[in-house]
Write a protein that binds this DNA or RNA. Structure first.
Lengths: 150, 150
DNA sequence: GTATTATAAGACATAATAGTCTTATATCTT
DNA sequence: AAGATATAAGACTATTATGTCTTATAATAC
């Protein structure tokens, strides 16, 4: 798997927050979000805490609390989310897991993978929450997972 | 992580077998290979059994036994090995883990990821054991992992 | 200020992956 | 045929990833 489940959940949740946020100073309830996306509430909470610590979300406790984007959706990229949750390893590590692999001491697939992972990085960096959630609205794309009991 | 450790070990081992095979009807000792590559013998054995069952390797028990490539190295691609060990999921699954994601019912990053994963597939398919192990010889590329105790 | 609401934090449980060990089986040597 | 050698198969353990639950803390409403 390229991304951890936590990371994909974090992406779906961030898109959901972007989509649901209409007014300023509005927080999206984690409980409601977990219901809508069919993601376990407690697990989602833990993931969102990572995004909060990374400065991508802000949170508010108490009534009308929840999470909100810390900045405009066009300033948040998918790459920001991947790195906040899975870390930067995907974009730096050797495909064959050889430590120290690089142009000086390459592994047998170093060149090809270095270019492929850079393309991946550019793909994630090029997708902001703004244009992705615009796509979601315009094309009625899916965000939620199927119910666990189905 | 893109590939499981088992898969990367399988790749390194296959390259090692390709490199070590000089004569016909020659088998490479798994014990020796595990020493050279610094991969646990028993774990490596289990991985090689998968490659044998997938028809990529053939094995022989007893003295002078071991494993050998089942066909010419130019007829074995990295993709064959990935699919034998990790299965085809990497090249078919949704990046966000949404089941049923496809051009009909796409996830928010479907288009970009579908193209990126196809590039990945082409990369693996384009790298045969023959040209990869040729690179290893010509450029003196590394194959082995560092010793565990270092 | 007190009760209520909702996230934060961390302990705990489960599942998947990674790694180890033992026994069985096939092959070779003599 | 008997003993030695090397892989096959499967049980077992350890580690990491995933998921759940309980308690603490902050914000709001009254």
């Amino acid at each position: 798997m390229v991304l951890s489940k936590a990371c994909t959940y974090g992406m779906l949740a961030s898109l959901y927050v972007a989509k649901e946020t209409t007014r300023e100073n509005e927080y999206v309830s984690i409980r409601l979000m977990s219901d809508e996306l069919n993601i376990s509430f407690h697990f989602l909470t833990k993931i969102l805490q990572k995004l909060t610590k990374a400065g991508i979300l802000i949170s508010l406790k108490g009534p009308n609390g929840g999470v909100a984007l810390s900045r405009a959706p066009k300033l948040i990229t998918m790459l920001d989310i991947v790195i906040a949750i899975d870390g930067p390893n995907l974009f730096t590590e050797c495909l064959l897991g050889l430590p120290g692999c690089g142009s000086q001491k390459p592994c047998p697939v170093h060149e090809k993978w270095a270019s492929a992972r850079e393309d991946l990085r550019i793909m994630f960096q090029g997708k902001t929450l703004a244009d992705t959630s615009h796509d979601v609205e315009a094309l009625n794309l899916r965000l939620s997972l199927p119910k666990a009991d189905s």
